[in-house]
Design a protein around this nucleic acid. Sequence first.
DNA 1: CGCGATTTGTGCACGACTTCACAAGCGCCT
DNA 2: AGGCGCTTGTGAAGTCGTGCACAAATCGCG
Lengths: 241, 241
Amino acid sequence: MSQHRPAGTPGRPSAVPALPDLPEATVARLPEYLRALHHLADAGNDTISSEGLAAAAGVNSAKLRKDLSHLGSYGTRGVGYDVALLIDQIEYVLGLTQRRSVALVGVGNLGHALAGYAGFGTRGFRIAALFDADPRRVGENINGLVVRHIDELAQIVAAEAIAIGVIATPATAAQAVADRLVAAGVTSILNFAPCVLAVPDGVDVRKVDLAIELQILSFHEHRKSSLTALPGGLGAEAVGT
Amino acid sequence: MSQHRPAGTPGRPSAVPALPDLPEATVARLPEYLRALHHLADAGNDTISSEGLAAAAGVNSAKLRKDLSHLGSYGTRGVGYDVALLIDQIEYVLGLTQRRSVALVGVGNLGHALAGYAGFGTRGFRIAALFDADPRRVGENINGLVVRHIDELAQIVAAEAIAIGVIATPATAAQAVADRLVAAGVTSILNFAPCVLAVPDGVDVRKVDLAIELQILSFHEHRKSSLTALPGGLGAEAVGT
DNA sequence: CGCGATTTGTGCACGACTTCACAAGCGCCT
DNA sequence: AGGCGCTTGTGAAGTCGTGCACAAATCGCG
């Protein structure tokens, strides 16, 4: 991760709250808090205690308080947190105050599903363009978006100021696609292909590999079954993340 | 996680190599090593150094050696690791020597894609049954599997000895589905619904939330853009995981 | 106005994970 | 046989994350 701190962080005019550099573990949990908060808000809650929010997000309450304290002091002792205010704060920190456009490359099995996934739209993102290398898929209309040929990628990414790319191609094509995305100016990539991507410094990559998740569960299954015939409960819940 | 250690671990007959209790972080990386090893094997490599494998898996070589050392000593100094042997060892530890059956609940947008995803089959898993609550979907044939009504879940999970369940339903249905899976005997759940699941001790849950991944990337985008006009490179690659 | 109940924010100790650096081991070449 | 180069396996130090426990702060009530 980046180590640089903005030179003038202390004593700034507070016009913009300034991004504190959060621990990566905290960043990974903020979206979960955000989801829980929206849920609470829909249920009509105006305030929520750290205990309550922690339960809704499935974490320890001390951890939650520490996470939120990194954003600043937005709770009231004896009362709890203002739900609406906290939502605003987290959305600001996560950069969700502006809807972010993403480019989705690879409209196969998984790509199709992602293109149609409503959760992106409701949580701050807009799929701005679909690409595929297969000419037979180009022109297809998915959810109101037309699939374009990947050769148009650079032009459209630039025109729409897209900074995030999603790769849902086979692993063999993923590196080439990543290279094209980076060349077009994308600086964050979500990779669903089961392979490691090499990208320049300054480009962030996150990977989601569905088979890996199952293999991790398989390990725990294996472990449990090799422990049968032992007295006492096993006690395992919410493995890893 | 489980704290119990098998009472008789030291001095066992070594008929079965015995599962060492691995650090969770190591377990999460083993599948990645496994994928890289298969790739190397396909490319005709018989042995591989920790440096080489680490590069292929996108990790630090010291970390890789420590991870593998937890499985036992399967490398040769001055030479490296025997690819085939290491594949066997990792597959054994992950419990992939037997193909594991999984039940997939929810055949919507995402469920469809998962049902058709070839990566499961090639990496140790078999989708043994599909379920949905919507009668209009029941009976549909996806990839050679017939969608069944969720009321049949208990019976089929028992009959096929299914231990792993995948939830690809809307968030509103996820907890109810999880309860039914657990009641039917499933002890590991992969949850794609954006919500927290409550399950009894002894049941493992892993969660994949696509929007959360994007939100984490969004944070880093926000951070990068608030750092422009600063001298020097930013340097960020392979954020978290 | 003061007191008690409640809840946040945080210092601190602990544990987990990472990374460096190097001794020990292995094979090859002479 | 012996030495040299390469690579593993691991001690040790450092970093990061977690969770307890409590002081500080706020509200409501008598």
